[in-house]
Nucleic acid binder design. Structure first.
Lengths: 224, 224
DNA sequence: CACGAAGCGGAGGAGGCATCTCGGGTTAGA
DNA sequence: TCTAACCCGAGATGCCTCCTCCGCTTCGTG
C-alpha cells in the first residue's frame, strides 16, 4: 500500500488535506473501487457519495469530475497489469508465462468491470491511464514474441488480439456474472485451446456450461 | 416475402389499412430494419420515424410501442435462424452442418445488432419472439448431438454454449464493426478451432488482426 | 363529388437520469 | 478563539426517451 513512488493522484505541490478530509477521501476511493468494479463506467459520482456515506458535494470537492476519479483509481491498476506482464515475459517457460498472463489478466478484468472499461476504451484526457497503457503495450509484444519463439503459440497471434480476447471475456463476464460468476473461465479455456500451435486433444474446461434455466435468468436480466 | 402462413403481425381480424397507411407501414418497417440492425435496442421510435421520413405520431399509430415493433420485426428473423439450424442438422456431414450453422448464424448476428439483442435478452411480453426461440432450441440440441456423434465436436460442448459464443462474437462485432467490419471472423475462427475434438494444427484465420492504429480508433469510439 | 373515417405530423408534456453548483452550517487545528 | 477548510444535499441545468394530443389532410365509398 504505502509505496515509495510519488502519489501522482495528489501531487506534492498541494497542501496535505485536513485529517477528516483525508479520511473522507479514502472513503470515497473505497466506495468508488467497489462500485466501479461492479458497474464500470456507468457508476455515478452520486452513487459513490451515497455508498461512501457522504454528500455529493464532498465528492465533487475532492474530484472535479468523474474523469479525475477514474484517473486516480485506474492508472495504478493498469500498472499492476503491466507488472503481471513483465513477470510473465520473464518466466523461464515463455508459453507458461503467456498463459499465466492471460488467465491472471482475465481474472482482474472479470473481477473489475471498471478495469475492463478503461482497458478497452479511450477517454479523452486520461493522461495517466494512456501512459500506463503505453508502458503495457511493448511488454505485451515481448510476451507474444517469446511465446511464439517456443513454437507453442500459433504464429498468427498478434499482440492486438489481447484486446479482443479481453473484450470477449469481458462480455461473457458482464452477461453472466450474477448467475454464473465463474463461467468466463470456460470460454477463456476454449480460446486458450485455440491458441496452441501444436496439435493436441481439447484440454478439459474448468467450468461446465450453464444449464438452460440459468441461461434464461441471465437473458432476462440483460436489457440490451 | 408473400408467404402462406398468416401474417401474425397484422391479424386477419383487423380491417386492411388504407393504401397510404400500408405504404407508410412498409416504410416504417424498412427504416426500423436498417436502424435496429445498426444500433440494436437503443434505436428510438423517433429515430425510426425520422429515417422513414414520417412523423412520430404515424409510427406510434401503427405500433403502440417499441416492443410491438420489435415483435413484428424479429419473430420472422428468428425463424430464419431456426430454418438455418434445421438445414444444418440434416446436412449429410453433421460436423460440416454444425460449422455451417455457426458461421451463418454469426453472419446474421454481426450484420444485425437487433437480432443479436433479441437473441441474447428476454424482454417481458415478447410472445412471438419467445415462441420462435422455443422452436429453435431443440433444433440446436439436435445439431449438437449429431455433431458429437461424428466424434468431431468436442464432447463437453453444450447447446447452451451457442448463446455465449454469439455473445462473444457480438461483442467483437459491436466493438470493431466501424473500423474492421470483418474482424469477428478472426475470432470465430479461433473459437471454431477450439471446438474440434480431433487434434490438428491451427487452421488459418480468415482475417488478419487489427493493426495498432485501427485498434486505437476502435477504443476511441467506444465510450463504455 | 362530398363527406366521414382514417390517417398524418410534430410540438411538447411527463418522467428519468447524470452532472455539477451553491450557500448556509460545521469542524479541525493553529 | 477564530478562520480557512470542509461538509452537505436540494435543486438548477441539460439531455434523453417515450408517448400523447389535436388541428389538418387524405382516402375512398356512397
Amino acid at each position: 500500500m504505502g509505496n515509495m513512488t510519488r502519489d501522482s493522484s495528489r501531487p506534492a505541490t498541494t497542501r496535505p488535506l485536513r485529517r477528516d478530509a483525508e479520511l473522507n477521501r479514502q472513503r470515497i476511493m473505497i466506495a468508488a473501487r467497489e462500485l466501479f468494479s461492479e458497474r464500470g463506467f456507468e457508476t455515478t459520482l452520486d452513487d459513490v457519495a451515497h455508498r461512501a456515506g457522504l454528500g455529493v458535494g464532498t465528492v465533487y470537492r475532492r474530484f472535479p469530475n468523474k474523469e479525475h476519479l477514474i484517473e486516480a483509481m485506474f492508472a495504478e491498476r493498469l500498472d499492476e497489469l503491466a507488472e503481471l506482464a513483465t513477470q510473465a515475459a520473464h518466466a523461464p517457460d515463455p508459453w507458461a508465462g503467456f498463459l499465466d498472463f492471460l488467465w491472471r489478466a482475465a481474472e482482474l478484468i472479470t473481477a473489475d468491470r471498471g478495469l475492463h472499461d478503461v482497458m478497452t476504451s479511450t477517454v479523452f484526457g486520461h493522461d495517466q491511464v494512456a501512459r500506463a497503457k503505453d508502458r503495457l503495450i511493448p511488454i505485451a509484444r515481448d510476451l507474444v514474441r517469446r511465446a511464439k519463439d517456443t513454437g507453442k503459440l500459433r504464429a498468427d497471434f498478434a499482440a492486438e488480439d489481447f484486446a479482443l480476447l479481453f473484450k470477449m471475456i469481458g462480455a461473457v463476464s458482464a452477461y453472466t456474472h450474477t448467475d454464473a460468476p465463474d463461467l468466463w473461465r470456460r470460454y477463456l479455456g476454449l480460446l486458450v485451446d485455440s491458441l496452441r500451435a501444436e496439435p493436441g486433444p481439447p484440454s478439459p474446461l474448468p467450468v461446465p456450461a450453464m444449464d438452460a434455466e440459468t441461461l434464461q435468468n441471465a437473458m432476462a436480466r440483460c436489457h440490451r
